[in-house]
Design a protein around this nucleic acid. Sequence first.
DNA 1: GCTATACTGAACCATTAGGTTCAGTACGTA
DNA 2: TACGTACTGAACCTAATGGTTCAGTATAGC
Lengths: 121, 121
Amino acid sequence: MVQYSETRLDASFAALSDATRRGVLEQLGRGDASITQLAGQFRMTLTGMKKHIGLLERAALVTTEKAGRVRTCRLGVRALEEEAAWIGRHRELWNARFDALDKIVEQLKSKEKADARRTKR
Amino acid sequence: MVQYSETRLDASFAALSDATRRGVLEQLGRGDASITQLAGQFRMTLTGMKKHIGLLERAALVTTEKAGRVRTCRLGVRALEEEAAWIGRHRELWNARFDALDKIVEQLKSKEKADARRTKR
DNA sequence: GCTATACTGAACCATTAGGTTCAGTACGTA
DNA sequence: TACGTACTGAACCTAATGGTTCAGTATAGC
């Protein structure tokens, strides 16, 4: 059975909970970028953007590399694998449960109709 | 095109970023539960659990209903649909990008080999 | 009606998030 | 070597988290 690292999931879902950071991920999906570029694009100070990048990095959703003065940010290689897995696993379980509930509701409904017919007579 | 509510995603990813709340969701997947039951199971005060439930409710991941003294919690009906959609959409985009990068790397590699052969002569 | 149960709300505490400013440090280039 | 660019780090601010305790309020059951 797959073992999910709780803290890793904590960090990455937290990272995804901010619109700016989701935007950054979207942007990095279109190509690597420096911190200055990202800061400019999201109208934010360098320092502010660096904090966001720090969180994304901690969650292993992006990696960075410094060449000269410039730190280049790119998507993490296994970005969103575990997160998708967690959500997928639970959706399956829950959908199964919702289906079961639907069936019960259906049964109740048809039973109701039957009862109604019986009382009419 | 589907319009994603930014704040809804904010709330639900934030809700998922805590191991206790993920546990609660898992538990509710197995059946409805009262706040007292959940608090007992996760070794927490009623008040503490109620806060978690509040966050999950705000994210529309669970719904609650009070009957008499007891508030019963159950999974939200469309739980995790949007979240899965967001992650899914981005994984597709990113995988496409990673594939493209792979190709480029491949091309560089074969070019390198060709160059090596050429210099040997 | 009394009592125990189940929740609710306010107040508090420590930590973190999401920003800022300001003062460096390090690197590229003229 | 001097200057501008790109980042880094510390310090600060406000708001939110993740908990707690304590003091209600409402309801089920004897």
